[in-house]
Nucleic acid binder design. Structure first.
Lengths: 168, 168
DNA sequence: ACTAATTTTCAGTAAATTTTGAAAATTCAA
DNA sequence: TTGAATTTTCAAAATTTACTGAAAATTAGT
């Protein structure tokens, strides 16, 4: 397989993969392109490589920067703005976990703890099932939350090394 | 807050939550409804409670069954078919992890290992960056894969208990 | 301060996904 | 075996989400 072919394949698959994880296809493709680019590239480079509009590139690069996955880079002597992706995959994963936790898990846990406080007779079957379910999900979510906090703070080799050894 | 209000809130939020995880809104809502239903319910019950069409209920319950999150239940003396959700949240999470691993992670790892085999000069900057990136992602994915296997096999209390103690 | 290069915005359009509903298929009791 | 009850299918419609492109805003060199 040739490099150009493999690149296309990688970008396309990474895009499809992204859609299963709540990330839009184009954003994931831009991220993939940046991951395999040894040097920072411009909006125009991205437009050209992925055949998408300037507006689209602009919006999605902005999102990638907001997610902390991509940096704007200023190159001395260049008028244009360049983009560069964090290449350390552990940092990428950590950053994604951190953001999703903040954007999704934390608000969900907050909501669940409110829903537990409904007024109603616990002897009523429906009420009981509701409270039990919400409590169980909240408890589980709380544990996941703690676990993710540890992961976010942990150093790569220490964390994976220890975890794998622990479970061997 | 009243039970009916809390139920509506829970179903709606669970649906919104689902969309961030590549699950469609209705499927997640049906799942939520089943989670808080103490007894199995029918297609018609779901149609009525969520105000959606028969076809929609049918397709999404089928998907939920495929995902292993919901069971078809036969109630003696009843003509209609009933649905019931697995209520143990740990089992739900495990099942989701298992399915997503199978549907997404495993194929991605397979693809990555093929992409590493491109022919080209490793001294070329682009080629080197491509190979390095793909290799790093594959390595990371492989570790995640192993970790998830352990989680899937692990017993709830043992796993979470041990893990949390370990990281305390 | 002017102006050319570049980036950003966003209304309109296009594409993708989800939902409907009615017809077809299936099931099962009599 | 019939037919009423129930489930399934799927083409078309509705909805949601993503993309374009040109105008507006911003930036930076002279």
């Amino acid at each position: 397989m040739k490099l150009s072919e493999a690149k296309a394949q990688f970008i396309s698959s990474w895009g499809a993969f992204g859609t299963h994880w709540g990330i839009n296809r184009t954003m994931a493709q831009i991220h993939a392109l940046l991951l395999i680019s040894p040097d920072p590239i411009t909006q125009d480079d991205i437009m050209e490589q992925l055949n998408i509009s300037r507006g689209n590139v602009n919006m999605n690069t902005r999102d990638l920067v907001d997610w902390g996955l991509v940096d704007r880079v200023l190159i001395p002597g260049e008028r244009k703005e360049f983009f560069s992706a964090e290449k350390d995959i552990w940092k990428v994963a950590t950053q994604i976990i951190k953001e999703r936790k903040k954007r999704e898990l934390d608000p969900m846990l907050k909501l669940l703890s409110q829903l537990e406080k409904i007024d109603g007779d616990k002897k009523d079957k429906d009420t009981k099932q509701f409270i039990d379910t919400v409590a169980a999900i909240r408890k589980f979510g709380g544990q996941a939350d703690k676990m993710l906090d540890v992961m976010i703070k942990a150093d790569e080799s220490w964390f994976l090394g220890s975890l794998l050894k622990f479970f061997k």
